[in-house]
Computed example of a mutant assay.
Amino acid sequence: MSPATAVASAAAKALPQTSRAFDVTFACDPACVGRARRITRAFLGLWNVNGELAENILLAVSELVTNAIEHGTGDVALRLWYPHGELRIEVTDDNPAPAELRLAGDDDVSGRGLFLVAVLARTWGVSKDGKTTWCMFRIPEGRG
């Protein structure tokens, strides 16, 4: 092994691993939806998740955070983690009434968020206490 290769190899081993999770809490304010998207986009970039998959994940984050602001109470917590081939998104508020999938009418201006999440994500659900709505995306091999 050449000296340059040895130095590069040692430097690569010394670099810290990028965390595969983050948690952030926002005040219940519509402006936090944009902040949640920007933070998520930054982490997806670090994890090498991009393109259409990243856009779908960002849409799910937007919809879940928006639902928490519109229907929840108290602060809104966003958590993403991505251990092995799947990325999990959780959004928590203090409202114990669980999020419910519903079909919006043609003239309704809202009410399609969970439907979009259900279509884009591999799976989704609500915690037993009703305060956390979550979804999961499969991340193909070679990303992150």
Rank of each mutant, 00 (worst) to 15 (best):
L114M: 08
T123P: 15
S9T: 08
L15C: 10
W134I: 04
M136D: 01
L120I: 07
W124A: 14
V7H: 12
A77S: 07
H84Y: 03
A14Q: 05
V33F: 03
N56L: 05
M1P: 12
D129Y: 00
A10Q: 14
A104L: 01
L15F: 09
W124F: 15
R20A: 05
R88H: 06
L53P: 13
I39M: 15
S9K: 09
V24W: 03
T92N: 12
C135P: 10
D29Q: 05
T40I: 02
A97G: 06
V24M: 04
V119Y: 03
W81T: 07
L80F: 14
D107N: 07
L53Y: 10
L114N: 01
G111Y: 00
G113I: 00
G125H: 07
D94S: 04
A118W: 03
V65D: 01
W134L: 02
A97K: 09
H84I: 13
R37L: 12
S2E: 12
A42F: 08
K128V: 08
A10V: 09
M136K: 11
W81I: 15
E90W: 05
V49M: 12
P30R: 01
A97P: 15
G51M: 05
L101V: 02
P140M: 05
A54T: 13
L44Q: 10
L53G: 04
T123H: 12
V76A: 00
A60F: 09
A8L: 07
W134T: 03
T40R: 01
I69V: 11
Q17E: 13
S110C: 07
N56V: 09
L103P: 13
R88V: 05
L64D: 01
L80M: 15
G113M: 00
S127I: 14
